[in-house]
Design a protein around this nucleic acid. Sequence first.
DNA 1: AGTTTCGGCGCC
DNA 2: AAAGGGCGCCGAAACT
Length: 554
Amino acid sequence: MDVAPLGPDGLPAAPVRREADPAEAVRSRPGVTRWVWRSTSEVHPRLLAAGVRVARCYDVEAAETLLLGHEGRYGEPRSAAAALARLRGGPVPPDPPQRPAEPGAQPSLFEPRDAHVPLEDLVAVYAEQQRRIGATAHPDRMRLLVAAESAGMLVAAEMNRAGVPWRADVHRAVLHDLLGERYAGGGEPRRLAELADEVSAAFGRRVRPDLPADVVKAFAQAGIKVSSTRRWELESIDHPAVEPLIEYKKLYRIRVAHGWSWLQDWVRDGRFRPEFLAGGTVTGRWVTNGGGALQIPKVIRRAVVADPGWRLVVADAAQMEPRVLAAISRDPGLMEVAGRETDLYQSVSDRVFSGDRAQAKLAVLGAVYGQTSGDGLKNLAALRRRFPKAVAYVDEAARAGEEGRLVRTWLGRTCPPAARATEDAVEEAGIPVAAGAPVAEEEPDATRQWVPGYASTDARARGRFTRNFVVQGSAADWTLLLLAALRQALTDMAAELVFFQHDEVIVHCPEQEAQAVAAAIRDAAALAGRLTFGRTPVRFPFTTAVVECYADAK
DNA sequence: AGTTTCGGCGCC
DNA sequence: AAAGGGCGCCGAAACT
């Protein structure tokens, strides 16, 4: 068992001792404030299975990933074994391949997916990481980020164990309501079949609405040129097939993504069990493996129901992005607005857009996402006049991206470099980094070539990515601290965290705990705000609903 | 026949 | 009028 107890001074507490059973190791040392281990997803499920809880941990591989990113070495193997090899000068082993999602599987309980690293070596890697953290631009923030990422991995493992309360019978009723009954012997459910017939009738020939190519051809024969069958494009077309087609696509999607076979695959014994992965995206947002847990359609949320006598506390961070932008840019005007708990978009619209909340929201999100056209762009100018530091902050992040520089979140999570067409160029030394608030210094690198995704083929797309990264990623910094604080607050309660989605948490708890949980969420949000961003007037209010059913929360 | 990419859309 | 950041998922289409 590769765990080392960590003393209050942050260094490994002597003596290093080997234990056969990780649960026993933790039980026998109640005074340990933080456990260092290679991988939370390997160790923590075993502790949970044994009924053991740790207060804090330090995840060496999570730390390695964050440090490599910070050092501009994104592509390098991040396992503890690789970190050790770099430290000792041996051949660096590649990371093991990602395991694909599997319904009902909990393989991390049995098979470590990585090479074993002896305890003494792990301690050496840990000590070296402490040194590297100390060498960053903001060691305190980096230390906090590593702790927060580790806490997130504890929470993720605990949520994976808990599962989301799920009523399969309610889910089936919703499917039947929307899609109609299923015919024996396969084929589409009644409602889908009817809509497909309506589409065909409108075209005057048999058309398969689930085949984009068929639909495009059918419109062409009707004298209408469409370049795709995306909804926004179809909506602008005047043709009788459009309405049933859009309805078909909506229902088809539910059948395919969250239909009967999904229920079969992912729901067991009254729980939906996706696998939450903390730190699964480059911005620090989580992802889930299997079941599309972060894309549960609103209509399907009817099936998320608390156990008898229990409640769901559903809490949603209100206007998270602009509040985070206020905190990281320190724009006086935006901080003043974000210092209230009232609707921020309404406040902005009162000051800038004469009361039009929707316009204000579009403008703010347009600024964060890098909108390049439309009304949002027009209104961006007004936003810039009123909140110059805030807009300048994201503009500078965009410029950094366009020029091939890296940007960081508030706590120091670093965006990956834009990949090149040539692979070996990725780890080129001295990739220029904009520290904290990005600062323009470098000339554009005309020789650089980009490839898709966050490593985009064109510099403007890269700029949109880095612009968004500093806000979305700093928001993720904050939510990690929030989860850590909330987890601590729930320690002595029956309540369990069961769901987390970017800016929203769901706690499942006995009815009599619900108000205490709601209060704990508010306190955790405030604490996370102070810990993450330091002293700012910015507040992070949650809208909280205590419900029996998730669908009733909004 | 098996594997990868694409199209479209769900969530934030 | 044109269409922005991050993801996952599925079936079909496009490959090897």
